[in-house]
């Protein structure tokens, strides 16, 4: 990871949701965070800790109750961020290629240019054969590949990924993680990746942020000093990987237990 400029400053972000029972629910509490340009940051936390909410705030899809997000990597004519969503989010009425070039079309990029960029990313994600297929004809893994291609094709400064591989089977997931790494390593994009899998966070991230149970706070941030480029199958058997795994697991376990007792109450 190159020591570079700041990309995003998250300052004292809190978020509360109104609830039907009356008392508002605190989802996030006083989150402070600096993300470096070109960094791959993974966020792990127990379910319901507000990590998706944090990402949605960073994406501008939701407003924080207090605090602010300052993005310092804005580039003229390019989008600030593009999101890879957790669930099926491809527009069913567009072909794979039209989905990949959706952001470009919305920005008014001329068609030949759009086609060229879409073709490039379809090739990188091994989807060229399916350019004219509709989403209903694709498997879950292929859909998420298209989703990743759509985000990269949009050429944002920041990639936001909300558990993009969470619903896939293990083999497909590892394959897509490796593909994501390959494309990301060839770009210089800042990436923020939400996951509940420690394995995934360790394999992908430069740093891993552990969140507390609800209301979500920053519990710990760990540097992942594993060399790049990474081969996910090799990296998993390294002693350093196992050390870091334990470190994160013990940090996370407390919170998972807390979240569970909260649920059972």
């Amino acid at each position: 990871m190159s020591a570079s400029r700041d990309a995003i400053l998250v300052k004292n972000i809190s978020k509360t949701f109104p609830s039907r029972q009356g008392a508002p629910v605190a989802a996030l509490e006083d989150i402070n965070l600096t993300v470096k340009e070109g960094e791959f940051l993974c966020i792990v936390g127990p379910s319901g800790c507000g990590k998706s909410t944090l990402l949605r705030i960073l994406a501008g899809l939701e407003e924080p109750t207090s605090g602010e997000v300052v993005v310092t990597v804005k580039e003229e004519g390019k989008p600030v961020n593009s999101m890879v969503f957790q669930e099926q989010s491809l527009l069913p009425w567009y072909t794979v290629k039209d989905n990949v070039s959706y952001g470009l079309a919305m920005r008014g990029v001329p068609k030949p240019e759009r086609e060229r960029i879409a073709d490039h990313y379809l090739k990188m994600t091994d989807l060229s054969r399916f350019a004219h297929a509709y989403p209903y004809q694709l498997s879950g893994g292929m859909k998420q590949r298209v989703s990743v291609a759509r985000a990269f094709a949009n050429d944002p400064a920041i990639l936001l990924l909300d558990e993009p591989f969470g619903s896939l089977d293990e083999q497909t997931r590892v394959l897509l993680q490796q593909e994501l790494l390959k494309i990301w390593e060839g770009s210089n994009k800042t990436a923020i990746f939400i996951t509940h899998s420690i394995d995934e966070a360790l394999g992908l991230g430069d740093r891993v942020l552990v969140m507390t149970a609800r209301p979500g706070k920053v519990k710990a941030i760990l540097d992942i000093d594993l060399p790049r480029p990474r081969d996910l199958t090799v990296i998993r058997s390294q002693p350093r990987f196992l050390d870091l795994f334990h470190l994160i697991w013990f940090s996370l376990r407390e919170e998972v237990v807390k979240a569970r007792t909260e649920e059972l109450r």
């Binding site: 899809l61 593009s82 959706y102 952001g103 920005r107």
Partner: peptide, 27 residues
């Protein structure tokens, strides 16, 4: 609702939202 998020995140204008999400989604 996810398609509304997609349109917003990928920079669809109001008119483009009608054209690329609302109309095809209602078809």
């Amino acid at each position: 609702k996810i398609y509304l998020d997609v349109a917003k995140n990928y920079g669809a204008s109001r008119w483009n939202f009608y054209r690329t999400v609302a109309l095809p989604g209602a078809l």
